[in-house]
């Protein structure tokens, strides 16, 4: 199996996990859903946009994404307290 197909399978697995987790509510679930979104974005950036092979650039792209998703979680957590 080539790297592109493996990356796609990873994405499909992450989508399946999102679907399973979305049946539940609460703060930990929100963390899980946003973490899954982060890993999907990382798979697209690293595997399809080839940042995995560009020294330092995958982290440069995913760290701000992680901070932003953290901000969304904070807003969501404040709403459901």
């Amino acid at each position: 199996m080539d790297r592109l197909t493996r990356n796609w399978l990873t994405l499909i697995a992450l989508i399946a996990m999102t679907l399973a987790l979305s049946a539940f509510d609460g703060r930990p679930v929100a963390v899980g859903l946003l973490a899954l979104a982060f890993f999907k974005a990382r798979a697209i950036l690293g595997g399809f946009l080839h940042l995995r092979g560009a020294a330092g650039w995958l982290a440069a792209a995913t760290v701000p994404l992680g901070i932003w998703l953290g901000l969304l979680w904070g807003l969501n957590a404040a709403l459901i307290r």
Binding site: T18, D25, L33, A41, I44, L49, L69, N76, I80
Partner: peptide, 18 residues
Amino acid sequence: HMVDLVWVLILPPIYLLG
């Protein structure tokens, strides 16, 4: 891939986080 990337990021806040 950018279109793909945007979709996976906007999906949870729009459809799932509540």
